[in-house]
Lab assay of single mutants.
Amino acid sequence: MKVIFLKDVKGKGKKGEIKNVADGYANNFLFKQGLAIEATPANLKALE
């Protein structure tokens, strides 16, 4: 799953980066902790 990092995550990505991560990692950790959002077309456009 492609995500946009909202904060730096050690060993995974930095704020503003768009990366592929495992679905479970994104859903169970990144999204719940507010560290990333899904890289949907709307979210990508808002990032610009």
Rank of each mutant, 00 (worst) to 15 (best):
K32N: 12
A39T: 01
G13P: 01
K15S: 08
E38F: 04
F29Y: 13
L44F: 04
Q33F: 15
L47K: 06
A39V: 06
G16D: 03
V21W: 02
A39D: 01
L6W: 00
F29V: 13
P41G: 07
K7A: 12
A46I: 13
K32S: 13
A26I: 05
N43M: 08
I18P: 01
I4S: 01
T40K: 03
G13E: 04
M1R: 09
G11K: 07
L30I: 03
P41V: 12
L44T: 06
G16I: 01
A39L: 06
G34W: 05
K2L: 14
V9E: 01
V9R: 00
L44C: 12
F29G: 05
K32A: 14
K15T: 09
M1L: 13
G24I: 12
V9Y: 04
V21Q: 02
G34P: 00
K14E: 07
A26Q: 05
N28T: 07
V9D: 01
L47C: 08
N27T: 13
F31L: 13
K32G: 08
I18Y: 02
P41Y: 09
Y25N: 04
K14Q: 10
P41N: 09
L44A: 07
V3L: 02
A39G: 03
K15L: 07
V3I: 08
G13T: 02
K14H: 10
F5E: 03
V9C: 05
D23K: 15
D23W: 15
L35K: 03
E48K: 11
E17M: 06
K7D: 07
N28W: 07
I37T: 05
K7M: 12
Y25R: 05
F31P: 06
K2W: 15
K2Y: 14
A36W: 02
I4T: 01
G11E: 05
K7V: 14
F5V: 00
L47D: 03
K2Q: 11
F31D: 06
E38R: 10
K10S: 09
K32C: 13
A22I: 08
L6R: 01
E17T: 06
K19V: 13
L30W: 06
L30Q: 01
A36D: 01
G34D: 06
N28V: 06
E48L: 13
A36S: 01
N20P: 08
N27M: 15
Y25T: 05
I4V: 10
K15C: 11
G24H: 14
P41L: 11
L44S: 03
A36E: 01
K32P: 15
G11T: 05
I18W: 02
I4A: 02
V3D: 00
N28L: 09
G11L: 04
L30S: 00
L30D: 04
T40Q: 04
L47M: 12
L35S: 03
Q33P: 00
A42M: 07
D8W: 06
A46P: 05
N28F: 08
E17W: 04
V3H: 00
N27E: 14
K45S: 11
G24Q: 12
I4W: 00
E17R: 02
A36V: 08
K12L: 15
I4F: 05
G13F: 13
L44Q: 07
A22S: 14
G11D: 08
K10F: 13
Q33C: 15
F29H: 11
A36P: 00
G34T: 02
Y25S: 04
L35E: 03
K10M: 13
A42F: 05
A36Y: 01
P41A: 12
A22L: 10
E38L: 10
P41H: 10
T40M: 03
A46N: 11
K45I: 12
G13C: 07
L35G: 01
G13R: 00
E48T: 10
T40I: 05
E17L: 02
F31C: 07
I37H: 04
L30A: 02
A42Q: 12
D23Y: 14
L44D: 03
L44R: 07
V21S: 02
I4N: 03
T40G: 04
N20A: 13
K15D: 01
A46M: 13
A39F: 12
L47E: 05
K12I: 15
A22D: 15
G16K: 01
Q33S: 09
A26S: 03
K10Y: 13
Y25V: 08
T40F: 04
G34N: 08
E17V: 04
I37D: 02
K32F: 10
G34Y: 07
Q33E: 14
N28Y: 09
K10V: 12
A42T: 10
M1I: 15
I37F: 03
K19C: 09
A46V: 10
K2F: 13
N28K: 10
K12E: 13
E17F: 03
A22Y: 09
A26G: 06
K14D: 05
A22K: 12
A22T: 13
P41D: 13
V21N: 01
E48R: 12
Y25K: 05
K45H: 13
A42W: 03
N43G: 05
A46F: 13
G16N: 07
L6E: 01
K45W: 07
V3Q: 00
Y25Q: 04
K19A: 12
G11Y: 07
Y25C: 09
I37Q: 05
V21Y: 05
L44V: 12
K32R: 10
A42G: 10
Q33K: 13
E48M: 13
K12P: 01
N43C: 07
A46D: 11
F31Q: 05
G13Y: 13
T40Y: 03
K19N: 04
E38H: 08
A39Q: 01
L44K: 06
K15N: 05
K7L: 09
A22P: 15
K7S: 11
E48P: 08
A46Q: 12
N27L: 15
T40P: 03
A36L: 02
G13Q: 02
V21F: 09
F31V: 10
A26W: 07
D8Y: 07
N43P: 01
G24W: 15
N43F: 08
I18G: 00
I4L: 08
T40N: 08
G16F: 08
K15Y: 05
L35I: 08
I18D: 00
Q33D: 09
G24T: 14
N28R: 10
Y25E: 09
K19P: 00
A36K: 00
E17N: 04
K32E: 13
L35C: 06
Y25A: 05
K15H: 05
M1C: 12
G16A: 03
A46S: 11
Q33L: 14
F29T: 09
T40W: 02
G13L: 02
T40D: 06
L47R: 07
L44P: 03
K12R: 12
L35F: 10
E48Y: 12
K7T: 13
A26V: 05
F5N: 01
I18A: 03
A46C: 14
N27I: 15
M1F: 09
K32M: 12
K12A: 15
V3M: 01
